[in-house]
Amino acid sequence: MWTLQHAITTIFGAAIFPIAVGIIWGKLADEYKTLGGLLAGFFVVGTVWLLNHGIGLIFEPQMSGNFPGPWSDQALTCFWGLFVADLFAGKRLNWEAILTGILGGILGGILLFATI
């Protein structure tokens, strides 16, 4: 069951992920190129994941019971945060990229559905 405490931790977890990615990733990629992405994979996504899902800042009560799902990953916060940050900055909608992302998600979902 949702409580105010869960709402607070979920909102914080959702806010920190796009901030961390937006601040650190570009710097690492500038300084270390390809290896910067490797560092960012571990120390940005991995470490934030430990808090958001490993510990559970983002509350997912739908995962209990014998028919758990659907899982709403912290990835949503990364996508949405970086997207709106650019919208605040006045950038335009790139429909080609949006369509690519949605088609990729549908295809990934079909593959996960088809595996077992």
């Binding site: 990953d73 990835a75 949503l76 080609e96 295809l107 996960l112």
Partner: peptide, 26 residues
Amino acid sequence: IPNKNDGAWIDMALPIWLSSFLGGNV
């Protein structure tokens, strides 16, 4: 993913989130 300089960034997180939301976890 065809991101452009003047376009709002579409992160690979979008297909990642949608994959699990639609197809679950294995």
